[in-house]
Amino acid sequence: MKLLTLNFLTCARKACKTSAASFPLHPREAELEQVELDMNPQFIRNVLPRVEWEAMRSISQELGLPSLPDTAPGPEELADAEGGPTQILKDLHTLLMETTIASGKLLCANCGHEYAIKEGIANFLLPSHLV
């Protein structure tokens, strides 16, 4: 599961739908893996405005990854004078696209439910008593 994916997930329980504490889901006992991908600067530029920056900063800190700046970088910070990628763009590509959670759990801060992650896939199926 890519870290970027965590920025678009919330708890699946109906009781959590209205609670702000159900986002983001917090990784626990996470085993991280780096999967090398070709750099796609245009994708990063397009997805960055959709990323909830505070949630991404929180997830990054919880996983012990390098801290992100206080505010999301603007388009001018993603390309150097020659139009090449800046270090911040390379770091964002590594964090959002290449860093994956191979196994572990995702915890909802509202209800405490844990979603298992195995082989990079999170199981969001709820037991019948939680639906």
Score class of each variant (00 low, 15 high):
residue 80 D to C: 09
residue 49 P to D: 10
residue 40 N to M: 12
residue 54 E to R: 13
residue 93 H to Y: 04
residue 102 A to L: 13
residue 50 R to W: 10
residue 60 S to H: 00
residue 94 T to M: 11
residue 108 C to I: 01
residue 102 A to P: 00
residue 95 L to M: 06
residue 42 Q to C: 03
residue 99 T to R: 04
residue 108 C to S: 04
residue 15 A to V: 11
residue 46 N to D: 15
residue 81 A to Q: 09
residue 77 E to H: 12
residue 108 C to M: 05
residue 16 C to S: 07
residue 58 S to I: 04
residue 51 V to Q: 03
residue 21 A to Q: 13
residue 101 I to H: 06
residue 48 L to H: 05
residue 41 P to K: 04
residue 61 Q to M: 11
residue 34 Q to W: 12
residue 107 L to I: 03
residue 34 Q to E: 15
residue 99 T to E: 03
residue 20 A to I: 11
residue 40 N to F: 12
residue 63 L to W: 02
residue 61 Q to Y: 10
residue 33 E to T: 10
residue 83 G to D: 05
residue 26 H to W: 14
residue 48 L to M: 13
residue 58 S to R: 09
residue 88 I to A: 13
residue 113 H to V: 09
residue 82 E to Q: 14
residue 47 V to S: 03
residue 62 E to T: 11
residue 39 M to I: 14
residue 32 L to E: 05
residue 60 S to M: 01
residue 69 P to H: 06
residue 93 H to D: 07
residue 89 L to E: 08
residue 48 L to Y: 06
residue 37 L to C: 09
residue 87 Q to C: 03
residue 19 S to P: 02
residue 115 Y to I: 02
residue 111 C to A: 01
residue 22 S to F: 06
residue 104 G to I: 02
residue 54 E to V: 09
residue 44 I to K: 00
residue 22 S to M: 07
residue 56 M to T: 02
residue 91 D to M: 05
residue 64 G to R: 02
residue 19 S to K: 12
residue 33 E to A: 13
residue 99 T to V: 06
residue 32 L to F: 04
residue 44 I to G: 01
residue 87 Q to M: 13
residue 53 W to N: 07
residue 13 R to A: 03
residue 90 K to V: 10
residue 25 L to Q: 06
residue 113 H to E: 10
residue 56 M to P: 01
residue 66 P to R: 01
residue 66 P to H: 04
residue 22 S to L: 07
residue 39 M to S: 12
residue 112 G to T: 02
residue 43 F to G: 01
residue 45 R to H: 13
residue 59 I to S: 04
residue 12 A to Q: 14
residue 11 C to Y: 07
residue 66 P to E: 04
residue 72 A to K: 10
residue 79 A to R: 12
residue 61 Q to D: 15
residue 97 M to G: 01
residue 11 C to V: 03
residue 114 E to T: 07
residue 49 P to S: 10
residue 37 L to T: 06
residue 75 P to L: 12
residue 27 P to C: 00
residue 113 H to P: 00
residue 99 T to S: 11
residue 99 T to D: 03
residue 36 E to D: 13
residue 17 K to H: 15
residue 63 L to T: 07
residue 65 L to M: 11
residue 112 G to Q: 08
residue 72 A to T: 01
residue 41 P to V: 11
residue 65 L to S: 05
residue 98 E to Q: 15
residue 37 L to P: 00
residue 94 T to L: 15
residue 111 C to T: 01
residue 51 V to R: 02
residue 78 L to C: 06
residue 17 K to L: 15
residue 23 F to D: 02
residue 86 T to K: 08
residue 103 S to G: 08
residue 93 H to F: 14
residue 35 V to R: 13
residue 59 I to Y: 06
residue 82 E to V: 10
residue 71 T to L: 12
residue 19 S to R: 11
residue 78 L to T: 07
residue 92 L to Y: 01
residue 71 T to M: 11
residue 68 L to E: 01
residue 49 P to W: 08
residue 50 R to M: 14
residue 57 R to N: 09
residue 81 A to Y: 08
residue 107 L to A: 05
residue 107 L to W: 12
residue 88 I to Q: 12
residue 48 L to I: 09
residue 112 G to L: 05
residue 53 W to M: 08
residue 34 Q to R: 15
residue 92 L to F: 02
residue 105 K to T: 07
residue 81 A to E: 14
residue 17 K to P: 01
residue 21 A to L: 14
